[in-house]
Design a protein around this nucleic acid. Sequence first.
DNA 1: CAGTATTTGCAACGATGTTACATGTAAAAT
DNA 2: ATTTTACATGTAACATCGTTGCAAATACTG
Lengths: 132, 132
Amino acid sequence: MKNTLKNKDISQTPFRRDVLKIFNSHKNAIPLSVIEQELSSYNRVTLYRTIKSFIEKNIIHEIVISGEESKYALSKENKDTPYQQHIHFKCRSCNILFCSELDKAITISLEKHKIERLDIQAFGICNKCNIS
Amino acid sequence: MKNTLKNKDISQTPFRRDVLKIFNSHKNAIPLSVIEQELSSYNRVTLYRTIKSFIEKNIIHEIVISGEESKYALSKENKDTPYQQHIHFKCRSCNILFCSELDKAITISLEKHKIERLDIQAFGICNKCNIS
DNA sequence: CAGTATTTGCAACGATGTTACATGTAAAAT
DNA sequence: ATTTTACATGTAACATCGTTGCAAATACTG
Ligand SMILES: [Mn+2]
Ligand SMILES: [Mn+2]
Ligand SMILES: [Zn+2]
Ligand SMILES: [Zn+2]
């Protein structure tokens, strides 16, 4: 499970390891600004390139929501593990955003059009905010 | 059905009318670049502000997809008509993006979290691209 | 029509993301 | 282990995007 870089056919560099460590230390999706805060020092350009590589290699995926800073989260899929349907949940109270698997896959059909993949964002109130 | 500007409590100006005309003349969601092409002349700042007002007044809504230019489409909801669940379909062949209503509303439940609203993007092959 | 509120255009600015190129480093080959 | 090669990084410059302050123009109100 560790050493995602080697598994992903992408060369191991200190900077990439640091960024990956940050992703591994967060349960939820994080924006660039959080990565920047947690890196002691960094180069803007290199960070952009790192994020882009990670997305291309399927190490992370981007989650965009209208009017918000893009967020990034570790991907589960590999060469071995194929893509698995999941949704993104965003709490309107504490603002966390996380990936969540579903018991049963959602299917939608549209009469005339062939749907191959769904991208689902759910908005509401999370567990923690609900009880307090 | 016409004269959306008056209904929406937003003052009518030539520029806003022109932009609205463009939306009315397109069945599908369109990006800023298309609006810019179709306006004979325009001011960048004013266009940004117009789009922002239209979104605030619920005349249009923004559809963002990772890695793509944001697109905008007319909204159905008014003071009268409440929000109605719908999905966005994007064809990977001809690239059109449009809003589509569903026969039956989709519901997802997440055990611990309270879902209030869903945002669903569907990707695949549209009608037209499928037959040709 | 006159007075007020809102919108527009302009100029300047900040944030975001990209590119070219020289240098450094990781991985592969010997 | 050393050399070679391919790839990653840092720097600077740039382009694009979107925002702001302010003065002038226009739409709305009465
Ligand atoms: Mn996810
Ligand atoms: Mn829509
Ligand atoms: Zn919460
Ligand atoms: Zn199509």
